[in-house]
Write a protein that binds this DNA or RNA. Structure first.
Length: 585
RNA sequence: GCGCCCGUAGCUCAGCUGGAUAGAGCAGCGGACUUCUAAUCCGCAGGCCACAGGUUCGAAUCCUGUCGGGCGUACCA
């Protein structure tokens, strides 16, 4: 490795006994701590209390493995130029940190660190033997989290938009789980509003008319062809004697049951299972009335948060909470608008004592979500709500089919279902992976034709192929009688000093901290980035380095260990995404 | 009108508290299979990071404005 720095200080390269316990996160924390104490020992009081020497991955191999910008950030504070500051910090670094072999000062004043081979090798060894979980910090520490997602009305099959949300929610849940959280997945469904009545009536129309009866479907009703099938099922089960209005509940309940069954089966295509389906009707009227009373008891700026208009409607004065408009919560016929049960539902969640609650919503729910949050903050306290409730808003998916954008609406029956999408793309793995290659807040054009066409050279196959290749190596090694070492020793490190080995180990070492960051930010798309990097690193390694070689058993064994680490890491990461890791392709 | 999100290579997108020559896949061009799976690797080409100001030693990243796209602005959920 070239080192362009003026200062080049070789630190202790010995592998200490307790090096085995060092995880990537611990190493970075330790390095930051030492840097900070070094800075404080030099400049003392001038350094603000909240100063932190943040260590990140260096963005180019030529600069080393880890990087710190502290010197540049301190320039304004201690009135000195960054390179000089960096030099002083380096001189004061009298504690050698295990895992770090060298520090250099480069460019405008970056402090760059090189990881030693012993540490890198032992990290790979830990991955190979214990998997990714072993190296991830237990940030959740067994605390309980609730993730609410999908939560679409039970009025029809899930669509492409729900698919994005389902994949997002499931992956965020899994990310929290590997970070040590105990996660419950919950689906909230509105089954008592106007939409259910419309659905029931739409079913009744299909049921009562011999052939279709499209025209009679009520305004705002549901036109999807799936309801024709439900009508046939309804006749088979109840005969032909049902009437709308008088058998209203039968129609609605039947439709709801069918819809929920449909949704569950759609979700199973993605391998998603919820711990609980929470029904809105459980909250009505008790919990909702409680919530109304609690809101009514609140006074802001001398007047009540809740007021009644002349027509008898009950409003919440959201403008007093910093929101743009007041909202009707109870209509003049005594029924609730959707915000009211939403508030009651969230109060219910809070009463269940979770340490973290994640809501995953589409962009169309943003406004409602803000109102609900504002109400919760004034009922439960800002601090508590802000700390425990996290809302992830994802933008819409525009489906492009035959070069044209497809407009979607569940009510009109014009939509592409999740099921059709997966069938069209040809694989749920590809579908999931593609949705996770973009960040949630980015709009997404999903080109069906492209997804189908590309499916043979899709990014997910690139990753899966790396896994299958490693599996092939392991098979070949087994046949040749080569097995990877059972215990870590520094002699293994000496066998893995090649450029490609080191590059792969460096990549593997960075995975745990990147996964933790993805979990903390709740940005699952970062996982696909990590996977792509890792797969590329392995494919490069594979191209240049021969693993199975009976003439060099020791090197073979060491490289085999590295392969195992890589396979385990890819498999564990794909596992978080809910994507298969095939042994053959 | 107002609020939120987005605007980076021909296309789809990454870009980690503001930092070291702006990255990847696809599409294009040229190379590499008698060796653990070529669904791979290596190379070339391709960008005033929408535009204009501002803050800073330093901006794709922060602030303001303009333009363009999406969503919301329901007593639908």
């Amino acid at each position: 490795m070239k080192c362009s720095g003026v200062m080049f200080q070789v630190l202790n390269t010995m592998i200490r006994r307790n090096c085995r316990m060092m995880t990537p996160a611990m190493l970075r924390n330790e390095l930051e701590r030492v840097l900070e104490s070094s800075v404080r020992s030099i400049w003392g009081e001038t350094i603000p209390d909240d100063f932190r020497a943040v260590v990140t991955g260096a963005n180019d191999l030529q600069f080393g493995d880890l990087s710190c910008q502290a010197a540049m950030r301190l320039a304004g504070i201690v009135k000195d130029n960054p390179r000089s500051i960096a030099g002083k910090i380096t001189e004061a670094l009298d504690v050698s940190i295990e895992g770090i072999s060298a520090v250099s000062i480069d460019g405008p004043g970056f402090l760059n660190f090189r990881l030693n081979e012993g540490y890198l090798t032992s990290t790979s060894f830990k991955l190979a033997s214990g998997g990714l979980q072993l190296l991830l910090p237990d940030t959740g520490a067994g605390r309980e989290a609730l993730v609410e997602f999908v939560s679409s009305n039970p009025t029809g099959p899930l669509t492409v938009g729900h698919c994005r949300q389902a994949v997002l929610g499931e992956t965020i849940s899994s990310l929290l789980e590997v970070s040590g959280w105990k996660v419950s997945r919950e689906y909230y469904f509105n089954d008592s509003g106007r939409q259910m009545a419309l659905l029931g009536e739409s079913l009744a129309v299909r049921y009562l008319s011999a052939e279709g009866g499209e025209a009679a479907i009520p305004d705002g009703g549901y036109h999807g062809s799936y309801i024709i099938e439900w009508a046939a099922d309804l006749k088979a089960e109840y005969g032909t004697g049902l009437k709308w209005e008088s058998d209203r509940d039968t129609f609605i309940r039947f439709a709801e049951e069918k819809a929920i069954k449909m949704i569950r089966s759609d979700l199973s295509l993605l391998g998603i299972e919820f711990d609980r389906y929470f029904s809105e009707s459980e909250l009505i009227p008790g919990a909702v009335m409680d919530a109304v009373e609690k809101l009514s008891a609140i006074t802001v700026d001398g007047s009540s948060l809740v007021y009644q208009s002349d027509s008898g409607k009950l409003w919440v004065r959201f403008t007093a909470l910093g929101r743009p408009e007041d909202r009707v919560m109870i209509r003049d016929d005594g029924t609730y608008t959707y915000r009211m049960p939403d508030i009651a539902y969230h109060l219910d969640k809070f009463s269940r004592n979770y340490d973290l609650m994640v809501d995953i919503f589409g962009a169309d729910h943003l406004d409602t979500s803000r109102d609900v949050t504002a109400a919760l903050e004034c009922l439960l306290g800002k601090e508590d709500v802000r700390e425990k409730l996290k809302v992830v808003i994802h933008q819409f998916v525009t489906l492009v089919k035959d070069g044209r954008k497809v407009k979607m609406s569940t009510r009109s029956g014009e939509f592409v279902t999740l099921r059709e999408l997966i069938n069209d793309v040809g694989s749920s793995d590809v579908t999931k992976y593609l949705f996770l290659t973009r960040r949630a807040e980015a709009h997404m054009d999903f080109d069906l034709d492209l997804a189908r066409k590309q499916s043979s050279e899709n990014p997910v196959y690139y990753v899966q192929y790396a896994h299958a290749r490693i599996a092939g190596i392991l098979r070949a090694a087994g046949e040749a009688g080569i097995s990877s070492p059972h215990e870590f020793s520094s002699s293994i490190a000496e066998l893995l000093e090649g450029e490609y080995e080191r590059e792969l180990m460096r990549l593997l070492e960075s995975v745990p901290v990147n996964v933790t960051a993805a979990a903390e930010e709740m940005e699952p798309h970062r996982l696909t980035e990590i996977l792509a990097d890792l797969a590329a690193g392995f494919h490069r390694f594979y191209q240049h380095v021969r693993v199975v070689d009976t003439d060099n058993m020791d090197i073979s064994a060491a490289r085999l260990m590295l392969c195992k680490a890589c396979r385990r890491c890819i498999r564990d990461l794909l596992g978080i995404l809910g994507v298969n890791a095939p042994d053959r392709m």
